[in-house]
Amino acid sequence: MSADDTARRRLPRGTVPAAVGAFLLTLAAMLPLYVYDRVAVLPAQGRFEVTMVADGAGYLDTSRWEWVDGVRIIRNTSVSAQPHGPDWSAWEMSVDTVAEGAMIDHWSRRVIVDRGTGRSVNCCGEHVNGDRAVRQAGLVFSWPAGVGEADHPFYDAEVRAAPLMEFEGTDEVAGLSVRRYTQEVSATQVPESAREVPARLFTPGAQGTVTAGRWLQVVRTYWVEPVTGTVVNTHEARLETLRPQNADGEVHLLYAELGLRENQIAGRAEQARVRSLTLRALESWAPWALGPAGGLLLAAGAVLALRDRSRGGGRAGDDAPAVADAKAADSGETAGNRVPSA
Rank of each mutant, 00 (worst) to 15 (best):
A194C: 05
A206E: 09
F202Q: 01
L11A: 15
Q217I: 01
E225S: 02
G21I: 12
T278L: 15
A305D: 03
G58T: 11
R119H: 10
L290K: 03
P244Y: 01
D131N: 12
P244D: 03
H127F: 05
V159E: 01
E100W: 01
A29N: 13
D131F: 13
I74Q: 01
A316G: 09
S89T: 14
R195D: 00
D61K: 13
P12S: 11
G21R: 13
V224F: 09
L25T: 12
I104F: 07
T117M: 08
V134D: 06
G249C: 07
W91A: 04
V251T: 02
D325A: 12
W285P: 00
T234C: 11
A322K: 12
A102R: 08
A19N: 00
F141C: 05
R72I: 11
L31A: 10
T278D: 02
A28P: 15
H127E: 08
E92G: 13
W215D: 05
A18N: 07
R160T: 12
H252V: 13
T188G: 14
Q207M: 03
G125K: 07
E236W: 05
S80L: 14
P17D: 04
Q136W: 11
G138S: 13
R280Y: 05
A316S: 14
A3F: 13
R307L: 15
T278K: 12
A256D: 05
E172G: 12
G175K: 11
E184M: 13
S2I: 08
R200A: 12
